[in-house]
């Protein structure tokens, strides 16, 4: 009997600390892409609320709480993060397992906003991009999803295969930011 060993996208690469900034891998357990069928958004939202405790997210927003979230993931798409989707969701939407498709990291520490300013062309100032806000954008030429987790904490997702490039680009930006801080 063969036994296959699992390996996370950033295994052996993270954590990485630069000055006050840290980059760690996040294990979101289950990730399922939800795309409601025609006219099913409201019905889907209702089922999501009943089964997983969160509503269908508006564009650039996250619903739910730690452990069970729905992250807006593009036009008419959201990523259900945490729970295994209840079968009843499949009546209203296509469900596609993406648990292995994305490298997920958390950038944390004072100056995290400055690090992102070196990686992505969108506005992540606190007054514009608040906790619970998310976006699909570009990070150093890679398609990415960025979500604000806290004052100085962000979740960054890129395709699994881009993990090493993400590490290279983010730590590079972290070093640039860290070099300006402190004595």
């Amino acid at each position: 009997m063969v036994e296959l060993k699992a390996r996370t996208p950033m295994a052996g690469l993270l954590p990485a600390d630069v000055g006050a900034l840290s980059l760690t891998e996040l294990d979101l357990r289950k990730m399922t892409l939800l795309a409601p069928f025609q006219g099913q958004e409201a019905a889907l939202s209702k089922v999501m609320k009943a089964k997983h405790g969160m509503e269908w997210p508006m564009p650039n927003r996250v619903t739910g709480k730690a452990g069970a979230k729905a992250i807006w993931f593009g036009r008419a798409q959201a990523l259900l993060v945490g729970p295994v989707p209840d079968d009843s969701l499949a009546k209203h939407a296509s469900l596609v397992d993406q648990s292995d498709a994305w490298a997920v990291v958390e950038l944390r520490g004072e100056g995290a906003v400055d690090v992102l300013a070196r990686l992505t062309p969108v506005d992540v100032r606190a007054r514009v991009f608040k906790r619970g806000h998310t976006m699909r954008t570009e990070v150093a030429h890679m398609m990415a999803s960025i979500t604000r987790l806290g004052e100085d904490a962000f979740q960054i997702m890129v395709f699994r295969a881009f993990g090493r490039t993400l590490l290279h680009e983010v730590t590079n930006a972290m070093e640039g930011v860290a070099s300006r801080h402190g004595a």
Binding site: L33, S94, D97, S99, D100, A101, W102, F159, R160
Partner: peptide, 12 residues
């Protein structure tokens, strides 16, 4: 047409 698609290149 009621159809949805998603890239699963990286999933598998």
């Amino acid at each position: 047409m009621d159809v949805r698609f998603a890239s699963v290149t990286e999933q598998w």
